[in-house]
Simulated assay, not measured.
Amino acid sequence: MHWTRYAVGVLATLAGLLLVWYFRDIVGYIIVSAVLAIIGTPLAKLMKRVRVRGRSVPDWLAALVVLLLLWGVGVAMFAIFIPLVFDKLTALASVDFSTILASFEQPLRKLQNFLEEYFSLNVSTISISDTIGAQVERLFNPEKLQNFLGSIVSGVANAVIALFSITFITFFFLKDDNLFLRIILAVTPTKYEGNVKHALSSASSLLSRYFIGILAESTIMMLMVSISLICCGYLPQNAFFIGLIVGVLNVIPYVGPWLGFGISLLVSMAFVGGGTTMTFIVLSLAITILAAQMIDNFLLQPLLYSNSVNAHPLEIFIVILMAGHFAGVVGMLFAIPGYTVLRVIAKEFFNHFKIVRKLTEKM
């Protein structure tokens, strides 16, 4: 009887996971809506406390105003950056990177000779410049860029459906603070309802601080890099495009800053002209991004995140490596919030295990 109950539980769990996978698009809409609701709920609650002629703001009106604000921020960002991104991608498709890389032929040749002479590396049959050139041309292949643009256009219909669904669901999550909780409790055994309520409350609080911190950090990084590059003589549209790249990729832990620097360097070499030397481009970009990362690591992250995740840095590093191994860059992007939710759940339901108590003792 004991094993029968466990077998039924395992089969029910597997059936639930299969349903989630089958309806993964809808589940994704609900998760995104829940995240947006977590971000907007503090503002919605603040609006509900406002009294006009002795009456409080209706729940539907507070939810609608917050939803419009979220839409306004999103539309403003798209209106500013999407045309810029398309313009730069189109321009990249026509850039002759072989000419640009030719200017690095001499220093790359010196590097190759240095490796051959001092490290006894047999690289005489391999040209470093040719290898780098081949990789750059493969990455920025005009046909691939055009296909990428075409795939974006073809996905507009799906994006419209997704945006409408997310907007609709988010409105009701904002209107009714407990709606998501009631959905979860509807499929939760009665004896675990208290644990689920406490877990959702803790997870919402931690994730709210985390996501707001991520948005603020990316925006500040983008502005710092953009303004610094404009001061170095970059054209404003190029500076803001590079700042956008650095700000967006900065949300990927550890790897993001390096990706941002590498892509920004290629973009800079392609678009910064007017007699500007490659040495100046590399130095100005490296110093700008390094300075921004120093400010981010020692000032922004401690101020914005505080104890939002409540985990040891080594613990987070290992989790990010594991997520990157299983799901690549996307896994690294969602590693911290996903691990935060798992720790909250483990603390509520598996706290009798010693390892769980150790991992969650600061929560």
Rank of each mutant, 00 (worst) to 15 (best):
V8I: 15
G16L: 09
V20G: 14
D25I: 08
S33D: 07
I39W: 05
G40V: 05
L43C: 07
L43A: 14
K45G: 05
R51Q: 13
A63D: 03
L70W: 01
I80P: 05
T90I: 10
A91R: 15
T99E: 11
E105H: 14
P107Y: 00
R109V: 02
L111P: 01
N113F: 07
F114C: 01
E116V: 11
S120C: 02
S124C: 01
I126K: 05
L139M: 15
P142F: 06
E143I: 08
K144E: 09
V153N: 06
S154D: 13
V160Q: 02
V160W: 00
L163T: 08
L174H: 03
K175A: 09
K175W: 10
L181D: 11
I184K: 12
N195K: 15
K197P: 15
S208H: 14
S218Q: 09
C231R: 12
N238M: 09
I242H: 06
L244Y: 07
G247Q: 04
L249W: 04
T279M: 09
T279E: 13
T279W: 13
T279F: 13
V282S: 13
L285H: 08
L285D: 11
T288N: 03
A292Y: 07
P302H: 00
Y305D: 01
V309N: 02
N310M: 02
A311M: 15
I318R: 07
M322C: 14
G328P: 05
V329G: 04
Y339A: 12
T340K: 00
R343G: 03
I345A: 07
K347D: 14
F350L: 14
N351R: 06
T360N: 04
K362V: 08
K362N: 13
K362W: 10
